[in-house]
Design a protein around this nucleic acid. Sequence first.
DNA 1: CATGAATGAGGCTTCATTCAT
DNA 2: CATGAATGAAGCCTCATTCAT
Lengths: 210, 210, 210, 210
Amino acid sequence: MRAANSNGEETEKAIREAAVKVIAKHGFQAASLREIAKEVGIRAPSLYNYIKSKEKLLYDLLKVPVSEMISEYEMKTRDVTDPVARLQIFVQVHLDFHLNHRLEVFIGNMELRSLSSAHYRTITALREEYATLLNKIIDDGVKAGVFHAPHSRVITLVMLGMLSGVCNWYQPGGAMSADEMMKLHTDLAFRMLAAKLPAEAAKPARRRAA
Amino acid sequence: MRAANSNGEETEKAIREAAVKVIAKHGFQAASLREIAKEVGIRAPSLYNYIKSKEKLLYDLLKVPVSEMISEYEMKTRDVTDPVARLQIFVQVHLDFHLNHRLEVFIGNMELRSLSSAHYRTITALREEYATLLNKIIDDGVKAGVFHAPHSRVITLVMLGMLSGVCNWYQPGGAMSADEMMKLHTDLAFRMLAAKLPAEAAKPARRRAA
Amino acid sequence: MRAANSNGEETEKAIREAAVKVIAKHGFQAASLREIAKEVGIRAPSLYNYIKSKEKLLYDLLKVPVSEMISEYEMKTRDVTDPVARLQIFVQVHLDFHLNHRLEVFIGNMELRSLSSAHYRTITALREEYATLLNKIIDDGVKAGVFHAPHSRVITLVMLGMLSGVCNWYQPGGAMSADEMMKLHTDLAFRMLAAKLPAEAAKPARRRAA
Amino acid sequence: MRAANSNGEETEKAIREAAVKVIAKHGFQAASLREIAKEVGIRAPSLYNYIKSKEKLLYDLLKVPVSEMISEYEMKTRDVTDPVARLQIFVQVHLDFHLNHRLEVFIGNMELRSLSSAHYRTITALREEYATLLNKIIDDGVKAGVFHAPHSRVITLVMLGMLSGVCNWYQPGGAMSADEMMKLHTDLAFRMLAAKLPAEAAKPARRRAA
DNA sequence: CATGAATGAGGCTTCATTCAT
DNA sequence: CATGAATGAAGCCTCATTCAT
């Protein structure tokens, strides 16, 4: 009875985008499916052609970012062993994601509690796995004598806090570009480990034209 | 679960504590007055003898922490002008609060969006005022040549992120004591500014008996 | 769970069987077309190639059993006038149906209320017609002096209740065979009428031509 | 904001009565809390001041009748051992209840399936306990040589079917009084057991001291 | 003939809040 | 000061049904 241009896949993507937007704005509990549906241009019950439940929608939303950061990091460090280089990559991946998926990340930090306990465990495990990646970098660097970090576990958590705060206040088009932001955070991360950031490597190959 | 010997002031305090606990657990929207009331040992309608509305309760909860941190900081720096000393004090006040009022802080970071717009502006202004305190310390230190911080505004925000992450994972009775935590964060803050933390001042007088 | 080789008539039959099963399990209102469709191996909208509406489906389901019992009884008693023999046949037909179509009967007793009022009247009339068959047997027997039944109308209803209860608890493969069940009910029916069941006629011709 | 004559207990009773009425009319699933509430003169959410859930309401409704019949029977047979007398009492209690609480009984026979599994087990156990009362009467009578009943378990079930059918069609104020109905069913029950109902005991003392 | 997509209606339930007691 | 009773608003979700493909 509605527009015949109904394309399942497009709608599905639109729903996820709308959900991220609305949940980031109101929080998961306060986000109503009605509002999400309206954003997509359908009625609320139609959402159920695409989602199983509101909670499952959240789960899917939360799962993607961590998973992607983990696999992105692992892909980019496949041939890299140097802790210094690895840290640069980690920060780069992390910032890249936090700057370009601010809302997803924001939700991910906030709404773990709204998951069912099974889903909660899955996501929490993924996040722990992610944190362990950084922890290992730091430990390796300390062993190699290039980082100074007593209590590496705590420093890992503090550093993740520092690297993630950005999703609370960054606005694309603000005073500082994403690249500068990345560079700055890399600097700060190295400083936190009382390490020198090798000048020439400050900007690790991203899409290096040259 | 207070007894029935309801003393007005005690009840009011109990309500605030219960509210913090319940809101931290579920988020503001999902926190029900019924649950808060049950925690206190009364029925939901009785809450209205102490609060004007759920939203106003949140406002009061959110206002206290920032206000207290600001006045605590100002009190302690009344006679201090040195940026290095001021930063130490700032971190100390901030950590003290974040470690001992984890839940309030957590709520404060999360639930701004649930405020009415008037209240939102008030709280946001307070938080901006608070951030500006740190920003000024950094600027002063840079001018004085003791800190290195291009983009002091951004670094302020990042540093606040770092100093606040603790409320997401710290558990009293964990591996690291509050004092160690404070020391560590002070270290890291100075490192972020590429500054030396004067050894003898590492642990600024807290409640120095002598 | 039929395969995709959908033969129209087969599908229609499968739908009716699935509907009986699902409605018996949940009741008409609680039975969802989705579940019926799933049982058949198709999607809910496809049902509408075979049914006009959910209510009409119920109507068709309810109509068959009474109609069949009536015509079966009439066929078998075409040449029988003796009330005793007729009662035996009635019980036999009734039990045969109630044992072999437990679920249909169960639904028929339960879900009259879910019919539209026009359909309700039709089915109710059929059921009344059916009850009248038994009533007449009893009246004839009383007149002939072989049955004792004051208030024949009420006894008719009570006897129908007795003869129908079986659909609530009979399980094929249980302790008593269908034939024994039929014999027992015949006994009891005759006892209710304070009549003697002629020994040699206890098992009236079932599918014996003569 | 509503009538100040709100009396908790009265409302609770009114709700149960309305629920019985509405559920008997539509079936449990199709009975809407809105309709029940309207019958009581309140709005649907107000029901939740009295009930925990719709299912729990059903459970409470279903539990009462069987329980009461059991305890009524046990009270009245405390000093009675004769199977003949016991059967008379059983029929009397059963009919008394089925005539005066037609709707509750009707629901009880129909809506077991709508119970949660835990509640289902409880009610089913009660009903089994009740059936066992009758079964024992019959067995005792057979042993004593006053009843003839092969397959006493099946006859028990069939007799319960007969004794319960009344709730499907009896209308108070109909052609036959409740007392007559009771007498008739007692007669029929005895006939089903090929037993003689002692003439003078046909109407067992109901509340007559002697 | 089958289905994906959509939807209005409506279901149960929770909630913040009010008011009389 | 506390509460039982009540309620409008709103939430998530299921359903029967329609329609275009």
